[in-house]
């Protein structure tokens, strides 16, 4: 009877079942109840996730696309062409990341003053959201920071701490993108350098290496060598680290 609700029974079995139910009050009652539950399942309206979910998905997709551009390697080509291709990929990735980061920076600068949530109120909200258990809420906090045209040192420090210690890779990635806007700030620059050996999630490592390589930051050489020599480092990350080292 239960199977009949989700799959087509052979006609002989179905007929036997129907004949039995006609003569059995207990089974007829059971079927009425099962049919009631079955209709409830079929008509139960689903809940809809908030718009943040799609926004975060697109953010992850963009990060992955950026990582993929630099991770792609021709497998069966001559060394010469491989080197040419690698150079082109690196250049494209560098331009791509630079374009994304500078575009985000320019986008923020172009926004009207009305969208700047500066002041102690928004700082408080940001710090409170960063302590939330939910990763979505913490990403919201990072987005608040992005809305600030000139966040103070406390906000920058909170972003650095989150980049280094948040348990969720997507939150760390969002922080990284946010901090990249302030790459000219010596404190942020040093924090990004110090963060590289702490990162273990491949996608965060790749984006951070690309950013620091583009910044021509010589202090990451040691970290890159450690990443390359670590047996646990995924191949894609090693490739990016080796390319980064070569461009230093």
């Amino acid at each position: 009877m239960i199977d009949a609700q989700v799959e087509e029974l052979p006609s002989t079995v179905r007929q036997t079942l129907e004949r039995h139910i006609e003569g059995c009050e207990q089974c007829a009652a059971l079927r009425t109840e099962l049919d009631h539950l079955s209709r409830l399942f079929k008509t139960a309206p689903g809940a809809t996730p908030g718009p943040e979910l799609e926004k975060q998905f697109l953010q992850m997709l963009r990060a992955e696309e950026g990582a993929q551009k630099v991770a792609v390697q021709p497998a069966h080509r001559l060394i010469f062409w491989r080197n040419i291709a690698a150079a082109v990929i690196l250049l494209t990735a560098g331009i791509g990341i630079g374009w994304v980061l500078s575009g985000r920076h320019a986008e923020k600068q172009d926004r009207p003053l009305a969208v700047k949530p500066s002041g102690k109120g928004s700082d408080t909200l940001l710090f409170s959201l960063l302590k939330e258990e939910s990763a979505s809420e913490r990403i919201k906090a990072v987005n608040y920071a992005e809305e600030m045209s000139s966040p103070d040192q406390r906000v920058i420090s909170a972003l650095v701490t989150t980049l280094d210690h948040d348990k969720n890779a997507n939150v760390r990635l969002a922080c990284l993108y946010s901090l990249a806007r302030f790459q000219d700030n010596p404190y942020v620059r040093e924090a990004l350098v110090n963060s590289l050996p702490r990162q273990t999630e491949p996608i965060v490592q790749i984006v951070l290496i690309n950013l620091l390589t583009e910044m021509k930051e010589p202090r990451i050489k040691r970290s890159l060598q450690d990443i390359i020599s670590n047996d646990k480092t995924p191949k894609e990350v090693k490739n990016i680290a080796e390319k980064g080292l070569r461009t230093m």
């Binding site: 996730p49 908030g50 943040e52 979910l53 975060q56 998905f57 992850m60 997709l61 992955e64 939910s134 990763a135 979505s136 809420e137 969720n168 890779a169 997507n170």
Partner: peptide, 15 residues
């Protein structure tokens, strides 16, 4: 909220 996080983590893993 947890369900949104888990869905997000799931798509991260899929990617």
């Amino acid at each position: 909220a947890v369900s949104e996080d888990l869905t997000q983590n799931l798509f991260y893993r899929i990617i």
